[in-house]
């Protein structure tokens, strides 16, 4: 009951913001805000693999691409028809588009989750860096396939995707990935993931099916990467394989590590920072990326455990700090 009320509240707030923000902010800020939201979904989801489970995936862009192209193809060939039918039957525009978008996002996310399952399977045999390389390979293979398949636009890119994603949907995705991560962290399943990160051999000897949990981490993580991809597709209205190179995966890893491995709030913070920073540096023109990379190096040297280490920012944490201060 309490949970339903919370959900209603969140939906309400997002709905209002969705209406207010585009009027309060200029389109450029709005775009940065949307990209921040998508980055947060990517970073928090990758944190499940790299942070919680201590595995190392460098293929997140691949899962994102699967979700992006999967959902876009669905919308182009099926969803758009639904919206036309619903609207001609008198349904309100937002509802018709929302429904079509929701289904498209689910299609993309589930496809990405299936890819995550397949990529996670070799973790039975491969350890550490070798598993990482397989994820890298997967990401590159996906990109090359997209570049070669004419039906998805190949190297020309895929234009004309309906731009249904708005602040409401991106916000909802952020809430979903954060809630799932937190609930996972505080459950026996999350503890199993942490155990794998801390000592895989001990975890296995004490009854944790490490392969199953690694695969689980990959499935959940890639589901949300696919969701982020779907949102990106329906916000940008255009997809190109070059958006999903391994540099994109690297960017997301940088967010997770910079935020502090395992810290959900850290991932959020770093995702926003690393999305806004290049935008804020836009006036520096050619120097922009040089400054960006220098800052990355300096941050890693000065704060090697990430901005937050593995702590979380939360009301709970602040409370505990205060009581510790009093004692």
């Amino acid at each position: 009951m309490k949970q339903l009320a919370g959900l209603a509240l969140i939906l309400g707030v997002l709905g209002i913001l969705n209406f207010v923000l585009p009027q309060a902010l200029n389109p450029y800020f709005m775009r940065v805000l949307m990209l921040c939201g998508i980055s947060v979904v990517l970073a928090v989801s990758l944190n499940l693999i790299n942070g919680f489970t201590g595995q190392f995936s460098i293929g997140h862009a691949g899962f994102m691409a699967v979700g992006a192209y999967g959902s876009a193809m669905f919308s182009l060939h099926v969803g758009a028809g639904w919206v036309r039918t619903l609207e001609s039957a008198g349904a309100p525009e937002a509802a018709a588009q929302g429904l079509a978008l929701l289904v498209a996002l689910m299609v993309g996310s589930v496809l990405a989750a299936i890819a995550g399952y397949l990529v996670g399977l070799p973790s039975l045999r491969l350890r550490g860096d070798y598993l990482a390389i397989v994820t890298l390979g997967f990401g590159e293979i996906i990109r090359v396939i997209i570049t070669n398949v004419d039906a998805v636009g190949a190297a020309r890119g895929l234009p004309g995707i309906p731009g249904w994603a708005n602040f409401f949907w991106v916000g909802l995705a952020v809430v979903a990935v954060v809630v799932v991560s937190r609930r996972l962290a505080n459950s026996t399943h999350g503890r199993a993931l942490f155990a794998i990160r801390d000592d895989e051999i001990a975890a296995e000897a004490l009854g944790v099916d490490t392969t199953r949990y690694k695969v689980l981490a990959f499935v959940i993580s890639s589901f949300f990467a696919g969701l982020a991809g779907g949102l990106f597709a329906h916000y940008n209205a255009y997809l190109h394989p070059n958006s999903f190179t391994f540099l994109k995966s690297i960017e997301v890893i940088a967010m997770v590590v910079l935020g502090g491995l395992g810290s959900i709030s850290g991932s959020i913070l770093a995702a926003i920072l690393l999305t806004v920073l290049p935008e804020a540096l836009r006036s520096a023109q050619e120097l922009r990326m040089v400054i960006y990379s220098l800052m990355l190096i300096v941050l890693m040297i000065t704060r090697p455990g990430g901005l937050l280490g593995n702590r979380e920012i939360s009301l709970d944490f602040l409370r505990r700090r205060r009581s510790a201060g009093r004692a």
Binding site: F194, D199, I201, A205, L206, G207
Partner: peptide, 25 residues
């Protein structure tokens, strides 16, 4: 189940979590 000669605890977790993890199944 077993213990390890060269102690292999779950370093980042508290004692209760260490026990909870082993009760996981």
């Amino acid at each position: 189940t077993r213990t390890f000669q060269n102690i292999r605890l779950f370093a980042s977790r508290c004692c209760r979590d260490n026990v909870l993890i082993a009760a996981h199944h």
